[in-house]
Amino acid sequence: MSDRALQRFARLADEPLVPTASASRGSWTTLKAVIDHRALLGLLVRRDVKARYKDSALGMLWTLINPLVQLLIYWLVLGQILGAARGIPDFAIYIFSGLTIFGLFSETLSAATGSIVANSGLVKKVYVPREIFPLATAGSALVTFGVQLIVLVAACLILDSAPLSMGLLYFLPAVLIVVIYAVSLGILLSAINVYLRDVQYLTSILLMLALWSSPIVYGWTMVQQVIDRLGLPQWLLDVYSANPVTIAVLGFHRAFWVAGTPSDYPADLALRMGIAIVVGLLLLWGCQRVFSRLQGNFAQEL
């Protein structure tokens, strides 16, 4: 037995014996483990981005084609044919900024939901903190988001309505809200999806509902008008405006859609965003607890 072996034994003898069971790890330990694995997180994001458009001729261009076609359809059908554009100035920017921030939510959530199943090869064979997989999907969705953001800014400049107002302060909180909620729900749903594969189909329906229940292709004021016209109680509008995705979309509009006036937004938008972030962090903690309960049996269910 060599000296190196004896040194190794001495070092090991100093280390504590740590239980392997994941259920016994707290959120704090998990957070530390994820931070320790941040390099892996970066590599997983790069892997996702690289592998996604591998062997396709247009590559990253596809991240643009999808929202541009969506923009075209909504602008033409809803804006021009159905007439939504009449109440909303700079309708193209309005729609595209809404679609961009919603795309971040929808891409993160749908990819995160399937992330544990998609990475089953890793989950079954090596131990890494499994929260990394849903988190990595947020990373690759942010890359897509970044590309679309460049296009959005370019479009704003071309249409001569440069987003240079104090409204830009709403940009970061809006993105933060979307990431927190998409990751929280993604962590929760990815764990449930291991046991019940129906969840991934459920997610796509939920995302469709979320798209139409936020002021993306119509204006927030239109909702107000409908509630007034039908004589519905005012708290319905509060319920509608309490949706974190709605809050994030409104904040994003505030940042990029300079044609809007204060009357286009609910009062105290900044406060609402703050509350949404705090609630979101609590939700993230709760979802992580459920995830760590469920993850002990991942390897055998996959």
């Binding site: 090991l12 014996l17 740590v18 392997t20 069971a21 079954k124 131990y127 002990g296 049996n297 055998q300």
Partner: peptide, 12 residues
């Protein structure tokens, strides 16, 4: 990779 149903594994 798999958690035991009962009992524990400790390692360093």
């Amino acid at each position: 990779i798999i958690d035991p149903t009962s009992g524990s594994v400790r390692r360093r």
